[in-house]
Amino acid sequence: MAIVFQKPKALTDAPLHYCPGCTHGIIHRLVAEAIDELGIEGKTVGVAPVGCAVMAYDYFACDMVEAAHGRAPAVATGLKRALPENIVFTYQGDGDLASIGMAETVHAATRGENITIIFVNNAIYGMTGGQMAPTSLPGQVTQTSPYGRDTATAGFPIRVSEMLATLDGPQYIERVAVNNVKNVNKAKKAIKKAFQNQVEGKGFSLIEVVSSCPTNWGMTPSKALQWVEEKMIPYYPLGVYKDRSAEKEGK
């Protein structure tokens, strides 16, 4: 009988703990598929964040390290410097990467560390129950912005991809989404390229994945995906923000 669907080898058999309708599962799968297709599972070391993906170390079948909140790029730097022949990736959320860990993110990027960062942006702190994130949209209601994010007091959302693209260090920065099949396919391509870059020694690659959080947004999963399309993507436009190899080819 022909196999039409199976779990990627780079994922373990552990059942995911994510909420119904959460897109972490899809993104985990895309990462695992990339690892499988590049045949790098045996030499990959992943770094899990603090946030909803805190237990990603149980889900990925490669060696894993659990980092302190925001410190994954620093931990990954240590790993990669000690294991230059291995493949090192981090998997981080918006609070982890763009708030408490912004310094580590920016400096790993500007050093051009040859690592891969998967940045899941769902505009909210999920694990702690729905607080305002650095990427929460203006007016977005969260537990800690109950009247909507007031930019006068809480400032503006950070567009991480655009910001990092101003640096000379990074090799490749792209923002993707996983709200429909077409976008999932594009996301897959981008994530694989981000790993491929590392295999080829090209340097720092970061893929920002615009994601959803039905539970903390207070929406049904399908409504949440609609919200991604209508609210998130206009604020966080998808696309390639930096690709040094494309630059070299004259685009």
Binding site: A68, R71, G78, L79, R81, A103
Partner: peptide
């Protein structure tokens, strides 16, 4: 030798290498 962006980053780089 790596001059980190902060002491916080430096010790976490140490953590990464220690894991290896």
């Amino acid at each position: 030798f790596l001059q980190a962006e902060s002491e916080v980053a430096a010790i976490n780089m140490v953590y990464g290498v220690a894991g290896t």
